[in-house]
Simulated scan of single mutants.
Amino acid sequence: MDDGPPKKTELRTGPEALRERLRLLYHGRSPGALRFQYVVMVVDLLIVAFFVASPLLREHPSFLWVDFSIAALLALDITARTMASKDIPHWLRQPTSIVDIFILVTLLFPLWLANLGFLRVLRLWSLSRSGMFWRPLVRRGYGPWREVVQSAVNLITFLFVVTGFIYTFFFREGSGFAGYIDALYFTVTSMTTTGYGDILLPGPWGKLTAVVIMLAGITLFIRLGQAIFRPNKVWHPCPQCGLQRHDPDAVHCKACGNMLNIPDSDD
């Protein structure tokens, strides 16, 4: 009669203990948690570098091995972050989570979804929105640069996603590294509306692609300029209305007038 309850308690508390441990690693501020977050950040950046170069590496014999290895790492990371979340359904509905799951699917089926491989660079965008990415940086005083960095990442992500798209659908056949450089060159000249005209995409779809790149490029450049030159703000969500950006010396929220308690940047 005494053997039943302890087993049930162990089964009930085991997963919860694991979730609490993962929550401390992904969201904690202890030295061990910060070291773990830095390691994850470095691994994520290396994975993004592979995604940027993947259009060129697709024909390499070891590509599939690297692809499936990264898929295993990403699946492990997604599973761990899901378990660390306090509200799993809400976490799974977040745009960053949807992007990461989509990237995992392209990694698990690289041959079937080869033409969508260029979208893996979106991992850089989801990484820049991750609280785990910014938490250790904010602790080191880089919080005021958050909006600038995110705007720059938006621009860089768009640049390499479009470059991968153009390379995949317009330059891929036998073009190799030179074709990728041509795709990158065309993307940059279109985004900046320089338009030298020495490289053109064929057909009406090529022209429409160039138009989209030009319009989106101008928007992203303007957004980056605004983030750099407008007055500095700090990220501190208002507990009343949720407004996140405030003046560093703000005492009351500009939106609702609620009293704020913004910590000093040196804390």
Rank of each mutant, 00 (worst) to 15 (best):
M1A: 14
M1H: 11
K7L: 11
R21F: 15
L22W: 10
L24M: 03
Y26N: 01
S30C: 00
P31H: 04
A33M: 15
L34H: 04
L34C: 05
Y38N: 03
V39F: 11
M41W: 15
I47C: 07
F51E: 06
S54I: 05
P61S: 10
S85E: 12
K86R: 15
D87G: 08
D87S: 14
I88E: 09
H90E: 15
W91A: 15
V99W: 06
D100H: 10
D100G: 03
I101K: 01
I101V: 12
I101Q: 01
I101E: 01
I101R: 02
L104Y: 01
L116S: 11
F118K: 02
L119T: 07
R120M: 14
L122F: 13
L124Q: 05
R129Q: 09
G131E: 14
G143P: 08
G143F: 05
W145H: 14
R146H: 12
V149N: 08
V153C: 05
I156T: 06
F158C: 06
T168K: 12
T168C: 10
G174D: 09
F177C: 12
I181P: 08
D182R: 15
I199A: 06
I199N: 05
A210M: 15
L215N: 04
I218S: 01
F221I: 14
R223K: 12
R230G: 00
R230D: 00
Q240K: 13
G242M: 01
G242E: 00
L243W: 05
Q244C: 02
Q244R: 15
H252V: 08
M259D: 00
I262G: 10
